[in-house]
């Protein structure tokens, strides 16, 4: 198996001017390491503002990084300029699918032209364009393609529009795709369809996918591995079944506990809820960043930052009390 993308200790800091205080550093990504292989999906989950989209964009080099390295199939692209990324075809090989299927398509363009646009920009020939566009539309099940190429976005449902977005991302033959909340604005009844479609295209085209989502439940159907983020860091990461069945980090445990299932018995019990809200990334807590909300925090957590350590096969956790939690001598919920 081949590694498609690799991030090594990647940091993304913003210099934000905040009124009277002058300038402050916002650590949107604070040392993230991960890799994604061919035909593999890595899901990234966590609360709003924890850095998921920043991670996705930095990995595509749509944002510059502050430090660390990004390797695309072994080649260091961390410092490449736009021209070089383009010349060496990295731009073609890395694509993104956005959240909003409504505003992301030009309402005055036909579907065929929308999907063909990236090919035209890269100077492909007319015949080649037609063939590639049709194949992409077939891949996303907008069939028969000749029926869809002449339609306009407003004639399509949200789910169909998102498939147009996916087709457009596919035409340049990418090997790495970032899908940033691709189904959060689509009707519940079509979400599974889009996600399963994305998975089968990933396999047939042998791509690696970074799947960003708020909805942890969807991750288990499409992602082989999962990374739980908190304030710009990875709190826990591992094979999806391992993380979902035996979560170790208190944040993961509580996050999973707050996801509801349709059960009439729910109304007679209170939901387990994490107290408070994530602290501002402008002023992150010392030591373990989760200590202000963690029900099992100890003195050490306030001062010492826990390292990401492998506690089970390919399952990593950044928590001082991971071993006790695994042994069951400390209980989180």
């Amino acid at each position: 198996m081949e590694e498609v993308i690799r991030l090594e200790n990647v940091k993304k800091y913003y210099d934000v001017r905040s009124g009277l205080l002058g300038s402050k550093i916002l650590k949107a990504l604070d040392g993230v390491t991960l890799s994604i292989w061919k035909k593999e999906t890595m899901a990234v989950v966590g609360e709003s503002g924890c850095g998921k989209s920043t991670l996705g964009r930095v990995s595509l080099r749509l944002l510059d990084l502050t430090s660390g390295r990004i390797l695309f199939k072994g080649q260091d692209i961390s410092k490449m300029k736009e021209d070089e990324l383009r010349e060496k075809s990295f731009r073609k090989k890395m694509q993104i699918i956005f959240q909003d299927p409504y505003s992301s398509l030009n309402p005055f363009m036909r579907i065929g032209d929308i999907v063909a646009e990236p090919l035209e920009i890269h100077g492909y020939h007319r015949e080649e364009i037609k063939e590639t566009v049709y194949r992409a539309l077939e891949d996303v099940k907008l069939v028969p393609p000749e029926e869809f190429v002449n339609r306009y976005p407003h004639e399509l449902s949200g789910g169909q529009r998102q498939r147009v977005n996916i087709a457009r991302a596919l035409v340049l033959g990418p090997e790495y795709i970032v899908a940033d909340e691709p189904v959060s604005m689509i009707d519940a009844s079509s979400r599974a369809e889009i996600l399963l479609l994305l998975k089968s295209i990933r396999d047939s085209r042998e791509m690696g996918v970074l799947y960003i989502t708020h909805d942890i439940a969807t991750a288990r159907y499409v992602a082989e591995r999962i990374a739980v983020m908190y304030l710009g860091e990875i709190a826990e990461t591992g094979l999806t079944p391992s993380v979902l069945k035996t979560p170790i980090h208190p944040y993961t445990i509580m996050l999973l506990n707050s996801v509801p299932e349709p059960d009439p018995a729910n109304r007679r019990r209170r939901r387990l809820a994490i107290k408070g809200e994530p602290p501002s990334p402008l002023n992150p807590p010392s030591g373990c960043k989760f200590h202000t909300r963690c029900p099992v925090a100890i003195e050490r957590c306030r001062t010492e930052k826990p390292a990401l350590i492998e506690y089970m096969p390919r399952h990593f956790v950044a928590c001082h009390r991971a071993e006790e939690i695994m042994r069951g001598t400390t209980s989180v919920a």
Binding site: A188, S189, S190, A217, T218, R220
Partner: peptide, 23 residues
Amino acid sequence: EKLLASIPRLRGETIPEFIPGRP
């Protein structure tokens, strides 16, 4: 029935289905 079957679940083994077509 189909709406319930389309919900991705954190627990259990069922794979979510989808309802073809649109409202």
